[in-house]
Design a protein around this nucleic acid. Structure first.
Lengths: 191, 191
DNA sequence: AACCATACGGAACGCTGTTCCGCTTAACAA
DNA sequence: TTGTTAAGCGGAACAGCGTTCCGTATGGTT
């Protein structure tokens, strides 16, 4: 995927439109969720749909671009959590909490993350590439400290947490954080 | 929702078509997943789309009709598991396993279950109405026996398990059963 | 000022679920 | 057997989606 996000030496109107698009998308996502129609985003940016696809080959790429900073921040928080302790397991739970925050805060982001979405592949890949290694480090540290079982795969854990967050908004009877907490508690069970 | 499934004294061709539709839908769901287009099901049954909607007001109703027997069986398995012991917690895990089987076996069923689907509301309601009470009994028994924490809600647990099953097919790196196992292990943690 | 690659807008395409309505036909009465 | 009619059927049509395409406009350069 060619990164159309970097400033590059493109035409002024192109750069301007890209900015409008990112701003508009962020606003629309907050208001209507990540699954908002492309046409709505185009309209909010005062731009035609063709322009959207010129800048972002697919809806997923637009979503990635909008949330890139936050995903990046989450990834960088991993080592920080580990350093701040007090134990690797505590760091893991705190980091997972921040991940859950990221997903639950943005309407429909978690749902968009599932692999079998067809579209949204790019979104899934980006999250996986960036966050799985971070999670793996935390898991390894906790396992090394004997705080959790050793046979937990970072990819699976992240997918599981992501799945648990689906529909966390839009259903008052459901509390994703609580279930994630139980899942993390389950990691402590003996191998 | 009026139940168009009961035999009633309708015209012979109507009954015949309803049968074809259910058979065809079951076959198509196995082959292409629960989210297969209505047109495909109509074609497989040798029937027009209008006929599909005459018998099943919405796609969700068709899905419910196809899986009604299996959901019923799962619901009835609850008390049986409890009776067979050896402990309420063992019964709970065995019952949840059968629930997971139900979801993982049918492509895309778990995904269709999420509440915020828009369409598929009927499916969600049916599962909830039928299975939450069963799960609640199992949870209560296990809690009473002091095997698990007391503050676990049946609806939340079922939604959590359902969510964990999303995409279990179509992603070899992901093992829903394993994560459900971890979640259940988490139930044993102290209040 | 004149040129043209770059970028734009939005109609058009192919895919959904669902609705609508003119036609067919099963069921029943005479 | 034939006639009547309401139940049922088929599939065109509608609305909404992501995405593609292409004639037109324009920023940057000579």
């Amino acid at each position: 995927m060619t990164d159309t996000t970097e400033p590059g030496r493109r035409r002024a109107d192109a750069r301007r439109n890209q900015r409008s698009l990112l701003d508009a998308a962020a606003a629309v996502f907050v208001a209507s969720g990540v699954e908002a129609p492309v046409r709505d985003i185009a309209a909010a940016a005062g731009v035609g749909v063709g322009t959207v696809y010129r800048h972002f080959p697919t809806r997923a790429d637009l979503v990635v671009a909008v949330y890139r900073h936050q995903v990046e921040a989450c990834a960088e928080a991993g080592p920080v959590c580990l350093a701040e302790g007090p134990t690797p397991y505590a760091a893991l739970t705190r980091w997972i909490d921040s991940f859950v925050d990221l997903l639950v805060t943005k309407h429909g982001l978690a749902a968009a993350l599932r692999a079998d979405s067809g579209q949204f592949d790019a979104l899934h890949s980006y999250f996986v590439d960036r966050l799985v290694p971070v999670c793996a480090d935390l898991l390894a540290a906790a396992a090394e400290a004997g705080e959790i079982r050793r046979d937990v795969d970072a990819y699976q854990l992240l997918r599981g947490v992501g799945n648990l967050c689906i529909g966390a908004d839009s259903d008052p009877r459901y509390d994703a954080r609580r279930l994630v907490g139980l899942l993390l508690a389950g990691l402590r069970s003996p191998d």
